[in-house]
Write a protein that binds this DNA or RNA. Structure first.
Lengths: 201, 201
DNA sequence: GTTTGCATGTAACGAACGTTACATGTAACG
DNA sequence: CGTTACATGTAACGTTCGTTACATGCAAAC
């Protein structure tokens, strides 16, 4: 059992959550963790191995935390987007999500460096979103829009820290979607049409 | 007249648009521009001065290009968000916008390095958005949401390059907002701010 | 013709980078 | 006790970083 490596990984995650990926350097990191660059290479093999361990731990944390949320809330029947938002901006998840988005950004310009750490494709959200959407909104355009709303607001939250304004904007979006569904139910009995729809249900 | 410095700045911009900010290094840059690191420092004073010149040029380009768009489209009467989107994903602006968003990202983690180059606050879009929104939608939540939709879809466009899907999602958002306004007009006789409405979303 | 000032080339500086070689400690196991 | 395997410290490797010192070219100004 490599308790030392696991200890280091945990501390490494904390360091990354605070300092971010692009400015990561072995010696300052080692100093902060109370060890040496030598030991980091010893335990993780290389800087890339170190990043891989950190990204794995980040993904594991996000996956399990999100799964716990899904299990807890799946039974209920309203506003999954709002739960997801509340979960994402909660203190224990926010830094992880921030780091995750940072990874996505880095992967755009330096895919050979950071693309490795993107598990699955960035569209993993798409299927997740569709799974939680009401049937009559479960088309690609609506799912893409919903994800974009989440992404845009989350990044605005990251940039400004204005939780109140971003959350209010999200609620406005939810309100818009619900109004549209009600309006649709009142005026027509058929499910909606779409502009350029690849996949609807 | 420093034609040499201006030439270098133009070439520098092209290089930055392609390679991005975080991996910028003087020697590879100089090699690509057919000059030397020595000359870059000579002309721009320092790497920071070089970045400042580039960011100034980028801001100037975005500002003038956006102003041209506004002048051309202000007279018409529909869907400024859609114009803005088409403008942003147009070939001659896309890389600039991408670089601009990249700068915003970098500034979050390293404000002392990149925050300098953020002219004005990141909420500059907010006022711009409100200016173009119909009067009865001109509240902060709606403006924040609209910007988030734009940001989220643009970054999705950057990450995936899927112009069709992201544009369809934007159209869906516009449709949602218009439906909501129609619904509001039908159910209540008075809009929130009874005012002349000249533009759509 | 000499001086002045901008532009450029060569070479190096000191620092930081990821990584490695090598020796040493320590504790379990035979 | 001796071996073995993991853990750690010291020191350096070679490279790249931004930056600088110094010399030189070259055109205009005096």
């Amino acid at each position: 059992m490599q308790t030392r490596k696991e200890e280091l990984t945990a501390a490494l995650i904390d360091y990354l959550l605070e300092h971010g990926l692009p400015e990561l350097s072995l010696r300052p990191l080692a100093a902060a963790l109370g060890t040496s660059a030598r030991l980091l290479i010893y335990h993780f093999g290389s800087k890339e191995g170190l990043l891989a361990a950190a990204m794995d731990a980040m993904h594991a944390h996000l996956r399990s935390s999100l799964q716990a949320l899904a299990d807890a809330k799946m039974a209920a029947a309203a506003k999954p987007l709002r739960w997801f938002w509340d979960w994402a901006i909660a203190a224990e998840n926010f830094a992880y999500m921030k780091l995750f988005y940072e990874l996505q950004m880095m992967a755009v310009r330096q895919p050979e460096t950071y693309g490795t750490f993107l598990q699955g494709n960035s569209l993993g959200w798409l299927e997740l979103a569709k799974r939680f959407m009401p049937d009559d909104d479960r088309d690609t355009a609506m799912a893409s829009l919903t994800i974009a709303v989440f992404d845009g607001l989350f990044l605005e939250m990251v940039a400004t820290g204005d939780c109140q304004r971003t959350t209010a904007a999200l609620d406005r979006y939810i309100e818009l979607v619900e109004q549209a569904r009600l309006h649709r139910a009142n005026t027509t009995s058929k499910p909606r049409h779409a502009s350029t729809r690849k996949q609807g249900t």
